[in-house]
Amino acid sequence: MKKILIVLTNVSHYANTHDATGLWLGEATEFAEEIQKAGYAIDYVSPKGGFVPLDPRSMKYVDDSIMKFYETTDFKKRALANSLSPQDVNPDDYSAIYYTGGHGVMWDFPNNPELQKIALSIYNHSGYITSVCHGVAGLLKIKDDNDNYLISGKKITGFTTAEEIIAGKKSVVPFLNRPVAKSHGATFVKKRAYSTFAIQDGHLITGQNPFSARAVAAKLIQALN
């Protein structure tokens, strides 16, 4: 059985500010917990490898399951302290790649050719590209072998403009997901702000916000089975 690759950010603050950001904890732990319960092994990668910062605001939304997973030695060591670098990853080992969120990903996910190459290789070998919340930023610029945007003609979702306004970050993020997705040919689907929502279109599975990580995992597990 092949593994699932989880992508995490290395960005610790909003650009041109001292405001802290990073991985939105539950988007990693909730997905990983469901995937492991289904019997799949997990690896963690980040654009630079090594240390992964946590978005401090995400710690306000932890529950018992998130905290329990967060406190495991495996998660702290392999995800937060020693995530893999892209060059350490063999795409052939994975059935799917999952892009987590947290605002930091908007700076180090979209323009990373190494991660794009890994994702496309997994996709081209009948694997799945998945994301949640801001993690959709990792999908926006992936191009297929014909130099077309992979999301073109696909239905996807991610953190919405309305949710960005509610979060108070619309003025500091480098772009908004929906306009970029639409400009690259995707149909951006959304539901009520901060409600659980995930959608699958072929081998792309995306979730709208932090409350959608388990929904993405459920769709992926169903697809793999």
Rank of each mutant, 00 (worst) to 15 (best):
residue 3 K to F: 12
residue 4 I to L: 11
residue 5 L to G: 02
residue 13 H to S: 14
residue 13 H to V: 07
residue 16 N to A: 13
residue 20 A to H: 06
residue 21 T to Q: 01
residue 23 L to Y: 01
residue 27 E to D: 07
residue 28 A to C: 14
residue 29 T to A: 04
residue 42 I to M: 06
residue 43 D to V: 14
residue 43 D to F: 13
residue 44 Y to W: 12
residue 47 P to F: 04
residue 48 K to M: 15
residue 53 P to F: 11
residue 54 L to A: 07
residue 55 D to H: 08
residue 59 M to A: 12
residue 62 V to T: 15
residue 62 V to S: 13
residue 63 D to L: 04
residue 66 I to H: 00
residue 66 I to R: 05
residue 71 E to C: 03
residue 71 E to Y: 03
residue 72 T to W: 06
residue 72 T to N: 00
residue 75 F to E: 04
residue 77 K to C: 09
residue 77 K to V: 09
residue 77 K to H: 12
residue 79 A to C: 05
residue 80 L to G: 02
residue 82 N to T: 11
residue 83 S to Q: 03
residue 83 S to P: 00
residue 88 D to W: 03
residue 88 D to A: 14
residue 89 V to S: 03
residue 93 D to S: 11
residue 94 Y to P: 01
residue 96 A to P: 01
residue 96 A to K: 00
residue 98 Y to E: 07
residue 99 Y to T: 05
residue 101 G to N: 02
residue 102 G to D: 02
residue 104 G to D: 06
residue 105 V to L: 04
residue 106 M to A: 10
residue 109 F to T: 07
residue 109 F to H: 07
residue 109 F to K: 01
residue 116 Q to I: 12
residue 123 Y to P: 03
residue 123 Y to R: 00
residue 124 N to P: 01
residue 125 H to N: 15
residue 126 S to T: 12
residue 127 G to F: 10
residue 130 T to N: 05
residue 130 T to A: 14
residue 130 T to R: 01
residue 130 T to V: 12
residue 133 C to T: 04
residue 135 G to D: 07
residue 136 V to S: 10
residue 140 L to A: 04
residue 144 D to C: 06
residue 146 N to M: 09
residue 147 D to E: 15
residue 148 N to E: 14
residue 148 N to F: 09
residue 151 I to D: 02
residue 157 T to I: 08
residue 157 T to P: 01
residue 160 T to G: 03
residue 161 T to C: 08
residue 162 A to S: 13
residue 167 A to I: 04
residue 168 G to Y: 08
residue 175 F to I: 09
residue 176 L to V: 15
residue 179 P to T: 09
residue 180 V to C: 02
residue 181 A to S: 08
residue 185 G to C: 13
residue 187 T to E: 15
residue 188 F to V: 10
residue 191 K to W: 13
residue 191 K to G: 13
residue 195 S to A: 10
residue 195 S to Q: 14
residue 199 I to T: 03
residue 202 G to T: 09
residue 202 G to F: 04
residue 203 H to Y: 13
residue 205 I to W: 01
residue 206 T to M: 06
residue 206 T to D: 07
residue 207 G to E: 09
residue 208 Q to M: 13
residue 208 Q to I: 08
residue 210 P to S: 04
residue 213 A to D: 02
residue 215 A to E: 12
residue 217 A to S: 03
residue 220 L to G: 01
residue 224 L to H: 05
